[in-house]
Design a binder for these strands. Sequence first.
DNA 1: CGGTTACTCGACAGTATGTCGAAAAAATCG
DNA 2: CGATTTTTTCGACATACTGTCGAGTAACCG
Lengths: 202, 202
Amino acid sequence: MSQRRRGPSKGDLRERAILDTARELLARKPLAEITIDELAAGAEISRSSFYFYFDSKLAVVVALLHGLSGELGRDSEPWLEGTGPDEPALRRSLAALAVLWRDQGRLIAGALAAAPGCPPIARWRAGLREAHVARLAARITRDRAAGLAPDGPAPRVLAALVDDLRTAAFAAADDPEGLVDDLITVELRMLYGDLPVPHPPG
Amino acid sequence: MSQRRRGPSKGDLRERAILDTARELLARKPLAEITIDELAAGAEISRSSFYFYFDSKLAVVVALLHGLSGELGRDSEPWLEGTGPDEPALRRSLAALAVLWRDQGRLIAGALAAAPGCPPIARWRAGLREAHVARLAARITRDRAAGLAPDGPAPRVLAALVDDLRTAAFAAADDPEGLVDDLITVELRMLYGDLPVPHPPG
DNA sequence: CGGTTACTCGACAGTATGTCGAAAAAATCG
DNA sequence: CGATTTTTTCGACATACTGTCGAGTAACCG
């Protein structure tokens, strides 16, 4: 456990500075190439002082991820709670996700890479995934019952595949936002089969 | 560069022993948790002797991957060179891939995780991906020209999404072979839209 | 057998991580 | 203000892993 307790004070600024430095560095290089020295230097404290605020480099990552959890789910409500091939809702959901990947891609990618071997990160990832999969699976069940979607893989499995596809596609893309249109098409096909393609002509 | 030159001899056994040890360890734990000490111990040489055979831990991984490259592409010819929703061909392709992931999942996953930050591995991954994407994209173009597949994302983009999905799905699955049927359904939908589902009833 | 090549290892140097306890700085209180 | 307690800082240390070097031994080949 970190030794830090409570109360708003100078140390809070340092903690912030460390987090900010981490975000900054992550924008430029992968997590594995960032050392604690650099994080400490960025916050203008000595390396050993760093340990007063965080237990390890991964603890910083976990803190950053925590701040991200909220944003990651938001903007998906209308899509996940809706019914049928509601393309605009799906677009809003994917567009928001794309922005997040554009801005914090290295953080998320670094976290995913470190997940095996770092239980807290693995839990974070599992939690997010489960949240998405559960709701999407429910949506699939709903749609099938209403005759809106064709039969196919078990809802949870199909939902997991959609989740996997999103993560992999965004992680591999250098321009996440440019992928949104195509992801919409593909996800709708995965769920509903062939449908009028939302692609702009040309 | 490694200092080893040529000629079949005792050293060859050691090199093999190192590779075997690596495979063994990878079956039990992730790459990041394997040290050169362990690899050397497994081959019954001192740690410094290890460096006579390989330049680093990742060099061992690269060697293992090299042996894998052949298998990874094979069994996909009929599917990739074919036309239209040829489900049996796709099944053979995916089934072979699933076996590979079952047996060497940790190796592949470890390699993918290490890819950013290890150019040789990144090149290996990029090469495999490109090989698959190029051929699948050509197939998509063919099918669309023949009126067998609906329009949609650019062939290369769609092909890349299929590739991403496979990798992510197999990487996340604890039973890759159990995923084959569902992947078939989903990939066919991605490419062709809704079609008779190859799922066994029940 | 002598000489070249293949192989081995211990000693060393570098880098990163994480711990400890002593001290400085800041907040708190009488 | 001064005393005390809590917060914050840091240098010294211990550890783990990596990679290099040069000297030494074993294997092979004429």
